[in-house]
Simulated assay, not measured.
Amino acid sequence: MFIAGSGFYLQGDKNQLAMVVTGVYIFAAFYGPGAGPVPFSYSAEVFPLQVREIGMGLATAITWFFNFVNALVFPLQIQSWGSGPAFYWFGCWNIILWFLVLMFCPETKQFTLEELDEVFSMSTSRQVAYGLASPAYWFRRYVLRQKVHRVPLHEYHPSEEKDRPMVEHREKV
């Protein structure tokens, strides 16, 4: 969104078009397979069986309601703020919401329904502490290529010194 918004300040139609299209393309390339389908897949996993239909219906209705609001408001934003600031607005919201998802939406991959009940019944401060430790784990594992293992969320206790969100595996010599 920031790349697309910055493109509106370039001189020349071809440069401007190239930058805006590149920014929108990069956003769509990451949003489509990543955050785009999350409301549907996440809500399908987290609701208990007895309320899953109602939960999925509400999640879908809320998603489409805000898509509708966005479609109505975006042309007004462009008209009153200009194209660049309108894209910057959505870029800022992406950053804010990335942190909120990191802290308040726990990972549900590879958990059984019983473990999911345990995950969603734990304290918010414990989920936030685990979420805020995630970027350090990702950096060590994917950038530094270290062999680290993550303690599962339902086993993570930030108050205990012995449990850490990451455990480094060392080979015995």
Rank of each mutant, 00 (worst) to 15 (best):
M1E: 02
M1F: 10
F2M: 11
F2S: 03
I3R: 05
A4M: 05
G5V: 10
G5A: 10
S6K: 02
S6E: 03
G7K: 08
Q11E: 11
D13H: 11
K14A: 14
K14Q: 09
L17T: 11
L17Y: 06
V21N: 03
T22M: 13
V24T: 10
Y25T: 15
F27K: 03
A29L: 15
Y31N: 14
G32I: 14
G32D: 04
G32R: 00
P33T: 12
P33N: 07
G34H: 04
G34S: 12
G34D: 06
A35H: 08
G36L: 05
P37G: 13
P37K: 01
P37M: 06
P39W: 07
Y42V: 03
S43Y: 13
S43L: 02
V46L: 04
V46S: 01
V46M: 08
F47L: 04
P48R: 03
P48V: 06
L49E: 12
L49N: 09
V51W: 01
I54H: 01
G55E: 07
G55Q: 06
G57C: 08
L58S: 01
A59G: 13
A59N: 09
A61K: 01
I62M: 09
I62A: 12
T63V: 13
W64E: 06
F65I: 10
N67Q: 07
V69Q: 04
N70E: 08
A71I: 05
L72N: 07
F74E: 02
F74C: 00
P75V: 08
I78C: 08
I78L: 11
Q79D: 11
S80L: 13
S80K: 11
W81E: 10
G82S: 05
G84M: 10
P85R: 13
G91N: 09
I95R: 01
I96G: 12
W98F: 12
W98S: 14
W98H: 04
M103Q: 02
M103Y: 04
F104D: 01
C105Y: 13
P106Y: 10
E107I: 04
K109C: 02
K109E: 13
Q110D: 15
F111N: 12
T112N: 08
L113N: 10
L113D: 11
E115W: 02
L116N: 07
L116K: 15
D117Y: 02
E118L: 14
E118N: 03
E118S: 13
V119Q: 08
V119P: 03
V119K: 09
S121F: 06
S123G: 14
T124R: 12
T124Q: 05
T124N: 03
S125Q: 12
R126A: 09
R126M: 08
R126G: 03
R126N: 06
A129E: 11
Y130H: 12
G131K: 05
S134N: 13
S134I: 01
A136C: 08
Y137I: 11
Y137Q: 02
W138P: 00
F139W: 14
F139C: 06
R140G: 05
R141Y: 09
R141H: 12
Y142A: 03
V143F: 14
V148F: 04
H149D: 06
V151T: 15
V151D: 00
E155M: 03
Y156R: 04
H157E: 14
H157A: 08
P158Q: 05
E160V: 06
K162R: 14
D163Q: 13
R164K: 15
R164D: 02
R164G: 01
P165A: 05
M166Q: 13
V167F: 07
R170E: 09
R170A: 07
R170M: 04
E171C: 06
K172R: 11
V173A: 10
